[in-house]
Simulated scan of single mutants.
Amino acid sequence: MSKMKEKGEITVRFSPQELRSLRKTARALGYSSVEEYVRSLAISVLPESYQTSARNNLSLEPIYRTNLGSVYHADALDVLATLESNSVDLIMTSPPFALLKKKDYGNADANEYVRWFAPFAREFKRILKPTGSLVIDIGGSWQKGLPVKTIYQYELLVHLVKEMGFYLAQEFFWWNPARLATPAEWVTIRRIRVKDAVNTIWWLAKTPYPKASNKRVLQPYSKSQLKLFEKGYNAGPRPSGHKISSDAFRRNNGGAIPPNLLALANTESNTAYQRYCKENNLPQHPARFPVLIPAFFIQMLTDSLDLVLDPFAGSLTTGEAAERLGRRWICIEKERVYIEGGIGRFEHESARLNRNFPTGDSYNVAPPVLKPELDNEPLPEDGGQRRTRNVETRTS
């Protein structure tokens, strides 16, 4: 191997065997190129002062600011490289999902997703505080032309835990009761699957003990629990082996501890953001999560003036939640048109006048309903592989 040094750059020549080995290693570690891998190796062996200098050479400036937050129109990796190690309290994000249909905002293929995400994960690990959290909202994906799911979001979780050294603090599930019955081919046409209405949300951390308190996100007590406060609980042993005292469950703690199922319909239709987009002829981001999703985790996992980061910010929903809750925040987004619309979350007159969060509706989850009278209609022997004439007629 020979090297030629010039001002501002280094040219490195590898033998064919060395280059093949480097490419194999770079791909396995999730780097997009040999160059990216070699540069990362070079920076990692420099003293910390030189590493900081190398990162700060990227002179990126925010294109919008509030009293608490900054918005960057840039590639997330470029901005992440400028942030100090152990400086962020919460990374709250919803990266592009690995969907079959490619979106304007960009989304990686399921088979390449972990490799695409790996460079971001390395930066997340570096900039996150030991007490901080990484929260990733990530929806599922279907295999092309088949009524079966990919497992890319679980492969990502395994990579983050097994390879990157994150801890899975807890998994959450966001149930959207208003989601359409999709995929239509399998759900409403062939009727061989049920509505896909849940996203997984991974809560990860650098240590087993990130700072958190469920006291900050307590839910109203149910009517049955309020009655227990008045009448008490039937004391005695339970089939599980637990012994319940007569004083159990009679202490009012100000609310019920929420489950890890977040029931929240994504049905916003007249928010400040949407009005701002309409008034300024701007496209609305097609894959927004409700502001109460990031607000829940920001409230539970951060303190006032802590730093919240969203590297795939879309329409700046995380920034809005952080601003309302009094946290410092950084949002990064590559598509400028979505930033221009997202600014309406802070600049629209109605947003400035009303800083309260929307009130979510309560939902009852129906228990399984059985229809034994339909047993006389046999299940398709081929599992619904062929579209039958009856199906086509029934759904036309």
Score class of each variant (00 low, 15 high):
262 L>K: 09
264 L>T: 11
264 L>W: 13
265 A>L: 05
265 A>S: 05
265 A>W: 00
266 N>D: 10
266 N>I: 13
267 T>P: 12
268 E>T: 05
270 N>R: 01
271 T>D: 00
272 A>V: 06
273 Y>R: 02
273 Y>L: 09
273 Y>G: 01
274 Q>T: 03
275 R>L: 07
277 C>T: 04
277 C>H: 07
277 C>P: 12
278 K>G: 12
279 E>K: 15
280 N>Y: 04
280 N>V: 00
280 N>M: 03
280 N>R: 10
281 N>D: 12
281 N>K: 12
281 N>W: 10
281 N>M: 10
281 N>S: 07
282 L>N: 04
282 L>G: 08
284 Q>K: 09
284 Q>I: 11
285 H>W: 09
285 H>N: 11
287 A>N: 11
287 A>V: 13
287 A>L: 08
288 R>E: 02
294 P>D: 07
294 P>R: 06
295 A>P: 01
297 F>S: 03
297 F>M: 03
299 Q>G: 02
299 Q>L: 06
301 L>C: 12
302 T>H: 05
303 D>G: 13
304 S>T: 07
304 S>A: 09
306 D>P: 06
306 D>S: 10
307 L>M: 14
308 V>T: 06
309 L>Q: 03
309 L>C: 07
311 P>A: 11
312 F>D: 00
312 F>H: 03
314 G>V: 03
315 S>G: 03
316 L>C: 10
317 T>L: 06
317 T>W: 01
318 T>F: 09
318 T>G: 01
319 G>D: 01
319 G>M: 00
323 E>Q: 06
325 L>V: 13
325 L>R: 04
325 L>T: 02
327 R>S: 04
328 R>I: 11
330 I>E: 06
330 I>G: 04
331 C>F: 00
333 E>R: 14
334 K>H: 07
334 K>A: 15
334 K>Q: 10
335 E>L: 09
337 V>Y: 02
337 V>M: 05
340 E>Y: 04
341 G>S: 14
341 G>W: 03
342 G>I: 05
343 I>C: 03
343 I>D: 00
344 G>R: 01
344 G>F: 02
344 G>Q: 04
345 R>A: 07
346 F>M: 09
347 E>N: 11
349 E>T: 15
350 S>F: 01
350 S>R: 09
351 A>E: 07
351 A>V: 04
351 A>I: 09
353 L>G: 07
353 L>Y: 08
356 N>T: 05
357 F>T: 11
358 P>F: 00
359 T>Y: 15
361 D>C: 10
361 D>Q: 08
363 Y>E: 12
364 N>H: 14
365 V>G: 12
365 V>T: 15
365 V>N: 13
367 P>M: 10
367 P>N: 05
368 P>T: 14
369 V>R: 14
369 V>Y: 08
369 V>F: 06
369 V>L: 11
370 L>P: 13
370 L>N: 15
370 L>G: 09
371 K>D: 05
372 P>I: 08
379 L>I: 14
379 L>G: 10
379 L>E: 15
380 P>V: 13
380 P>L: 12
